[in-house]
Simulated assay, not measured.
Amino acid sequence: MKKILITGATGQLGSELLVLAPLYTQYEWVFANRTQITLDNLEILQSQLEVIRPDVIFNCGAYTAVDKAESEKDLAFTVNHLAVELIAKYAKENNVKLIHVSTDYVFDGNSSIALNEEAKTNPINVYGESKLAGEIACLQENPESIIIRTSWVYSKFGNNFVKTMKRLMQERDEINVVNDQIGSPTYAADLAQAMIDIIESPEWISGIYNYSNEGEISWYEFALSIKEFGGYSCKVGGIPSSSYPTPAKRPSFSLLDKKKIKIVYNLKVPNYKDSLRKMFA
């Protein structure tokens, strides 16, 4: 029986994989939290992997506090770069299949067309820099890895934009949301299913893949959809990013082109509204 290790098991993606795992009893699932797989301590991490001895690793663990990363650069790079490098090396040496999750924040946001896997990377914040360094190290140490870049992840678990909006729309009469950052959200349950579908696929084709839901929207338009499905009466206004300054700059355009993953792994990618509706249901 193949053993699948999930790092970052308590995060959004890990939690959605935990929901799906009982449907795939042909695998032994190991859901590792921060104490079982310690991404910020490389000395412990090596021995932890040797104890678990997985056949497949889903590396869903990451340092994701985008604004905090600006002042915690060393920690962000340890988790998002050095730990990934170590995991990729372990996977290579032990013939382990690795799917590593990355981000649209590896781009600078200056594109006006959907970004494919070959698009030039140029992160504009520390979080993006640390994730790009992790991607590069991952493929250098283990060219057989699969990297999935995703964006605007939400689910019923953890902290995310959808849950924040639901709460604010019930508490307030009026909210403002940035309307000049364009991309597409990702329902973590869809991404979790896509990762399992890749493992189930008869052929393993390594490399970088993009995955988010279909649709090209701003955060403001996303908020309007949340309002619609939640049936909230809160007034939603659109504002420019300049009116809502944050420690870390955000890419203004990070829409991902999903053609490659759809063709190579024959995946169906749902529209963001269908997935949002499913989460509300």
Rank of each mutant, 00 (worst) to 15 (best):
K3R: 15
L5R: 08
A9I: 07
G11H: 09
S15N: 10
L18F: 11
L18I: 09
V19R: 14
L20Q: 13
A21Q: 13
T25W: 03
Y27P: 07
W29L: 03
N33D: 15
R34L: 05
R34I: 03
D40S: 15
L45I: 10
L49K: 03
L49Y: 08
R53G: 12
D55T: 14
C60G: 13
A62T: 10
Y63R: 01
D67I: 00
E70K: 08
K73G: 06
D74C: 07
T78H: 02
H81M: 11
A88E: 04
K89H: 11
V96Q: 04
K97P: 00
I99Q: 03
I99R: 04
D104L: 07
Y105S: 09
V106W: 02
V106E: 02
N116K: 12
P123Y: 08
V126W: 00
G128M: 10
S130Q: 07
L132E: 03
G134L: 09
A137Y: 01
E141T: 07
I146K: 09
I146Y: 08
W152S: 03
S155M: 06
S155V: 00
F157V: 03
N159T: 12
F161T: 12
R167P: 00
M169E: 09
E171F: 08
N179T: 13
D180T: 11
S184E: 01
T186F: 00
A188C: 02
A188R: 02
D190F: 07
M195T: 07
M195W: 05
I196Y: 04
D197Q: 14
I198Y: 05
I199L: 15
W204P: 14
E214R: 13
E214Q: 15
E216H: 07
E216Y: 05
E216T: 15
I217R: 01
L224A: 08
E228V: 08
F229T: 00
G238M: 10
T246E: 11
A248F: 03
P251I: 05
L255D: 05
L256P: 04
K260I: 11
K260N: 14
I261M: 11
I263C: 10
Y265Q: 06
N266K: 15
L267M: 13
K273T: 11
D274W: 01
S275H: 00
K278Y: 01
